[in-house]
Design a protein around this nucleic acid. Structure first.
Lengths: 231, 231
DNA sequence: TTAAATTATTGATATTACTCAATATTCCAA
DNA sequence: TTGGAATATTGAGTAATATCAATAATTTAA
């Protein structure tokens, strides 16, 4: 963590998102004055669905799981966020509450940015706002993929989608699966934990994945994509 | 339709969205020069999933169904858009293709706005961009609701969600259900058409809805909300 | 290190919801 | 108006998947 103590100043932050590059120095200074950085330990709650949202959160360094909470402990995992990503962006103009919960998958440095300041920057700097819109374009596509997976696919297809997502090269250096329980995986696929276990065993038998405890590796991505397509 | 012939000029368009109010006259003029208005007849395709997206579409007047296409005619209906709403916003910065298909539920006047011009405005006018971000905040919330509905709810809850959405007061003057087939309703709930028919009959028997052919009216919204909550 | 708690696994069963098939109804065009 | 196509409805059978229960393995905390 020590290499980030130096970057608590936004002006020379090494983990800056593309959108911040659109800001002029005085604007960056403005952000810097209206943010706090907090270290969340693994498994700590970063934000809670339905809670009052005063800040936009930015992952200076870390790994975070976003999920929707439902009654009966039936959560839905939405995605895993990495360094340089935002949490709770939509609270800027939405209901002033977080629409989801977030938990640290490993120790994470999170910047809390005053919502009001963020709004001011959006209004004053169209390039900055455009970058945020860019983020939303991509975000929407991801949510559509989730909806497609949940809408009409059955177990096999859903789990394939979850595994493909979690093994995406975007997470290359992170051993994501080591940080997830079977329930986490099933909450990504939105199937029962028992079904997840059974299907994972199947995939292992078929040589599509390699599995040893929490360690899971995709051996045959093409077959997995086919399972996903077949639904 | 006739009362819109006069508003093909953006500067005095009566159906202007909140975001356009952020534009100065020269910017409105700029939009006006880079858009075309087209009348789509009921049931006509307005945009097609995966097709090349050159325009951002704006509903000057009409009613449009957005849906995701999957193989096997298993579509997923996402939402119904009314006058003053955008279609295909995310193609501005995304993959340059439409992420969904759209069809006119009734005759609709659609403005096709050059993507490049739209981008230019976003970059130059933070207030305009902020309004678009506002739209995205709300959009995200809706998609999360969809995901919650599809993730762990079973038939009854899903259909309740679909009916609650379609009977929302936001559509007050539109007799939405008259424009939808049973398959449309089931594609909103993501359940089979046969199940939809059976459940609708149940709801009618229980006095929760009134139904006569395509005409459906919610009689007991509270009970429907309970069904939705119970999942 | 050991006991307790949590998580993972497996099997059997029950529920859910789809598919298929048959029929009825509605819509549409000639 | 009338026949044909599309849509809606109903029933029966089946496939998919969750739940429950029991056990095993792993993790955690004292």
């Amino acid at each position: 963590m020590n290499d980030f103590t130096e970057s608590t100043n936004c002006l020379n932050c090494a983990k800056s998102s593309q959108c911040f590059k659109q800001l002029i120095p005085s604007e960056l200074e403005f952000i810097n004055e209206n943010k706090t950085q907090i270290l969340y330990r693994k498994d700590e709650n970063i934000c809670k669905q339905s809670a009052f949202a005063s800040y936009v959160l930015y992952i200076a360094d870390g790994l975070v799981k976003l999920y929707l909470e439902s009654p009966n402990n039936k959560n839905i995992n939405i995605k895993i966020l990495k360094t340089s990503e935002f949490i709770g962006l939509s609270s800027i103009y939405g209901d002033n509450i977080y629409n989801y919960s977030a938990i640290a998958l490993k120790d994470s440095n999170i910047c809390l940015i005053e919502k009001e300041s963020f709004r001011k920057l959006l209004n004053n700097n169209g390039n900055f706002a455009s970058e945020i819109i860019k983020w939303y374009c991509n975000n929407e596509k991801q949510l559509f993929n989730k909806i497609k997976s949940l809408g009409h696919k059955q177990m096999h297809g859903r789990l394939a989608d979850a595994l493909l997502y979690l093994s995406d090269e975007a997470f290359n250096q992170e051993e994501i699966f080591l940080l997830l329980s079977r329930k986490d995986i099933s909450d990504f696929a939105c199937i029962s934990t028992e079904s997840t276990v059974r299907l994972l065993a199947e995939l292992k038998n078929e040589g599509i994945i390699q599995m040893d405890g929490k360690h899971i590796k995709i051996l045959d991505r093409v077959k997995l994509i086919n399972i996903s397509k077949k639904g």
